[in-house]
């Protein structure tokens, strides 16, 4: 892959199952485990394609908006980029470090305080201890949580958690940022600030992937909009 590409999807599909129990009979699972050529293309009952043969290339420094109705596969696409889930078929190539801003604050440990959670989250985002140390002042200041930073996170409001999560992610040295419906972080002032930061990321040639239901917002921030419908894709240059 050439070095100016940041994300490449090559006929990527992802199959999901609707059933509650995520394993088959022990016997079937064992057979599947040792089978070499799995017949992945056909669907079993209560399975469906969340994403179907998706291909695209995204150059470095571009910002992509992702738009589509509920259940169209937006979150699945983000999770595939974040390498949280793997594709059923197809190949994904990623160039650079990823900061997923998906359900911010969900990874916080409730018994640990703000500072401890900053270290924890920062390290998961791939920052070294030294990097976190040098940035922690800025992270706290940005999140506007200086007064509560030694309080266990379980006592935070959901807005506070979002702000802290956003602040950590934005200060990580990632190359690709994934935003999932979080453009409404905090109050109006904080939203303003977060939008400014996103603009700054763009200026620094970071790749952005933004999911939103708000078309107007997306047009303001994304140079290209990807529309998903029932797991299929159509490109669109918004006007």
């Amino acid at each position: 892959m050439s070095s100016d590409l940041s994300i490449k999807f090559d006929r990527v599909s992802k199959k999901f199952s609707k059933s509650a129990i995520q394993h088959g009979l022990l016997r079937d699972d064992l057979v599947m485990f040792f089978k070499r050529n799995k017949n992945v293309d056909c669907l079993k009952t209560d399975e469906f394609w969340a994403l179907d043969q998706i291909s695209f290339k995204i150059p470095k420094g571009s910002s992509i908006g992702l738009y589509g109705p509920n259940g169209s596969g937006k979150s699945t696409l983000l999770k595939l980029i974040a390498n949280v889930i793997s594709p059923t078929t197809g190949k994904i190539t990623i160039n650079g470090r990823i900061a997923p801003l998906i359900e911010l604050g969900a990874g916080f440990h409730p018994d640990l305080n703000g500072i401890e959670n900053i270290y924890m989250n920062g390290a998961i985002l791939g920052m070294t201890i030294g990097e976190i140390k040098s940035k922690i002042e800025r992270i706290i200041e940005y999140s506007e949580l200086s007064d509560f930073i030694s309080t266990p996170v379980k006592k935070y409001s959901s807005g506070m958690k979002l702000r802290l999560g956003f602040s950590i992610a934005i200060h990580s040295e990632a190359d690709i940022f994934l935003f999932d419906e979080i453009l409404s972080v905090g109050d109006e002032a904080f939203q303003e600030k977060s939008l400014n930061s996103i603009q700054k990321l763009l200026k620094n040639k970071k790749t952005l992937f933004i999911v939103s239901h708000n078309k107007k917002r997306l047009t303001g921030m994304a140079d290209k909009i990807l529309i998903l419908e029932k797991g299929k894709i159509k490109w669109n240059i918004f006007d």
Partner: peptide, 20 residues
């Protein structure tokens, strides 16, 4: 190797949680 700092922090976190 890339995640060695995460490893240290996870150990430190386990200790913190355990003795709180």
């Amino acid at each position: 190797y890339k995640y060695k700092d995460l490893f240290y922090i996870l150990i430190w976190r386990e200790l913190l949680i355990r003795y709180k």
